[in-house]
């Protein structure tokens, strides 16, 4: 019951939160120099043509009017049109956001498996070789740029060994993509029963997922290691050892106590990676949402940028609410 009351309270705050995010990002994007009308019409355009296009786009209106119009359109489900793709931003994002989400989610799963496993083993023996390896890993994962690591992987596994497919998108060009349902190619291929498309999508995922997963396992590893060490030294773990509880069980209990911190860092990474994966998306020509937004910024194409911010914000809010629900499930001290 407390969960429901809490959820209701959280959802009430979602609308003003989103409005605030839209306002701030609108102002920021508007402050980027560059006139879309000039860019759209090219260098040979006459001043009168530019002026009429500006009027058509509403760019001659005062800023607050532009914002109000944008919000009004938002409420009608219209996120504007990208002048680069000449398609509605909503359509573009619905196609690209799942691509990013699929990549980021799988990468994060890999990062969780690597980070939590290594972190737990490192914490069990703070002076053991796993702990030393974990220190080295944490350091290098934090130091290596992801696009560089991606290029190294491509060089080894595509150029030299030829095991991985060319880094040119999410699926082989000769394979017909499955009918979009969720937007995630692997799931859509399975839904369509198209194994060829499924394997092709998986093969294209391997290198980018390895890149993002291995590098982002660093923070998860560090957080797991630090929290687990603290939990294993805590009074209740010590008492369990004094009571003759087997070490595996002591570690399991400590991990449950460490989970809230680990879940927190995972959720932060999840929200961050939606935009943070953009360099890797570019390296692999992924066609994801981050890439779309960066193109928008570079070309004064503001609606894709605003749409991306809005999508990311909604996504982050969903993740944070989910995390709060997980806290409720994990810790009786919160739920009671």
């Amino acid at each position: 019951m407390r969960i429901l009351a809490y959820l209701a309270k959280r959802l009430i705050f979602v609308i003003p939160q989103l409005l605030g995010i839209v306002l701030v990002s609108f102002l920021l994007v508007k402050s980027i120099p560059g006139d879309p009308a000039v860019l759209m019409l090219g260098p040979t355009a006459t001043p009168s043509a530019i002026a009429s296009l500006r009027q058509q786009l509403g760019l001659d209106q005062p800023l607050y009017m532009q914002f109000l119009i944008y919000v009004r359109n938002l409420l009608h489900g219209d996120l504007g049109t990208s002048w680069q793709t000449t398609r509605p931003v909503l359509e573009d994002l619905l196609q690209r956001f799942p691509a990013t989400l699929e990549l980021v989610t799988l990468s994060l799963l890999l990062a969780i498996v690597v980070g939590v496993t290594l972190g737990v083993y490192a914490a069990r023996k703070p002076n053991g070789w796993v702990a030393r390896l974990a220190d080295l890993y944490g350091l290098s994962a934090g130091a290596l740029p992801d696009f560089w690591f991606a290029l190294v992987l491509i060089f080894i596994f595509y150029t030299v060994l030829g095991w991985a497919p060319a880094p040119l998108g999410r699926i082989d060009m000769i394979v017909i993509p499955p009918l979009p349902v969720t937007g995630a190619l692997t799931i859509d291929a399975l839904l369509a029963g198209d194994l060829q498309a499924f394997w092709s999508a998986c093969a294209h995922l391997v290198l980018p997922v390895l890149t993002l997963g291995l590098l982002n396992a660093g923070p998860i590893l560090k957080m797991t290691q630090a929290t687990m060490e603290k939990m294993l030294e805590s009074d209740f773990s010590r008492f369990e050892v004094l009571c003759g509880v087997p070490q595996n069980l002591v570690v399991r209990h400590a991990l449950r106590n460490a989970l809230p911190s680990i879940v927190t860092i995972i959720s932060v990474l999840y929200g961050f990676l939606i935009g943070g994966a953009v360099l890797v998306e570019i390296v692999f020509s992924w066609g994801g949402a981050g890439q779309y937004a960066v193109q928008g910024v570079l070309n004064s194409d503001i609606y894709p940028v605003l749409g991306f911010v809005l999508f990311s914000a909604i996504f982050s809010l969903i993740v944070y609410i989910a995390v709060d629900l997980i806290y409720f499930l994990l810790d009786p001290r919160i739920s009671n």
Binding site: F236, E240, G244, P246, N257
Partner: peptide, 24 residues
């Protein structure tokens, strides 16, 4: 030793609220 602890030799500790696992 582990099999002796808590079975044949056990210990009562002070500050018990910190000594119990908070999640169980």
């Amino acid at each position: 030793l582990r099999r002796l602890r808590g079975r044949r030799l056990s210990v009562v500790v002070p500050n018990p609220r910190a000594e119990l696992n908070p999640l169980l």
